[in-house]
Design a protein around this nucleic acid. Structure first.
Lengths: 127, 127
DNA sequence: GCTTGACTTGGAGTTAACTCCAAGAGGTAG
DNA sequence: CTACCTCTTGGAGTTAACTCCAAGTCAAGC
């Protein structure tokens, strides 16, 4: 699969795909005889995984670490598991924070609605 | 309240507090006769609100807009409500996305645990 | 009256994560 | 064979959100 297709498929620019590879956010992609990237099924899975994790704000630095561990093989299974557990925990914490803010916003919105209603009432009475 | 105390209270550096004020992320804080910031209770509430909203990643740009609307008075009640509703919606969407990733991570972690267990079994049998 | 320390301002520097660009090469259409 | 298109690389530029800095002011202590 050529870079343009992968770009299309995952809605990431070719520049971003090359950048991800450059910094080790995805393993190196093989080139054909004329030096052009040819993404395997595996490569695409990595791209999808990384896009998904970046999408929720997981930092590039952590993901690079994960890819590095992966490339070192089975000896890093434990570290990779720990890394995931740690990130899962942080994710859950962020979600809790967001949940609180969501509730707070709901309260604020309700209060705005009331204030606006009262304004209108005041106006119609004054008519 | 002096900037140092506000900084302490909300765990934001004085530089960040000044920056927030400069860009209009919080309304202008009054200065005493010698030009030094003196935060009122109201100012502190703004700081807390902004810190909370920034904490979950609400962009500075949007918050500036909110503050601007606020400063224009009651005529912007509707716009402020709409802004909040819009941000609330986006927040909920982000949380859904995160929820999916959380589940995905859990699956990955479980699979790592299984793989590791199997490795161990294999080893002990080989002993 | 001079030093010290916390504050002021405007402006420059930093970091993360892209995003763009210039120079060059390979394959294909005319 | 030449033009054109898409790819390559290394490196420079951009954006958001701070974070740091230099030069100056002012009140308090000695």
């Amino acid at each position: 699969m050529l870079i343009a297709e992968v770009s299309e498929k995952f809605n990431l620019t070719p520049d971003t795909l090359r950048y991800y590879e450059r910094i080790g956010l995805i393993p190196r992609v093989n080139r054909n005889k004329s030096g052009i990237r040819d993404y395997t099924e595996q490569d695409c899975k990595w791209v999808e995984f990384i896009k998904c994790m970046r999408g929720i704000g997981l930092p590039v630095e952590i993901l690079i670490e994960y890819v590095e561990l992966y490339q070192q093989g089975d000896s890093t299974l434990d570290s990779r598991k720990e890394l995931l557990i740690d990130q899962r925990k942080q994710l859950a914490a962020r979600m809790e924070e967001m949940q609180k803010v969501l509730v707070r916003m709901d309260g604020k919105i309700t209060r705005y609605e009331q204030t606006i209603l009262e304004k209108e009432k005041g106006l119609s009475r004054a008519k």
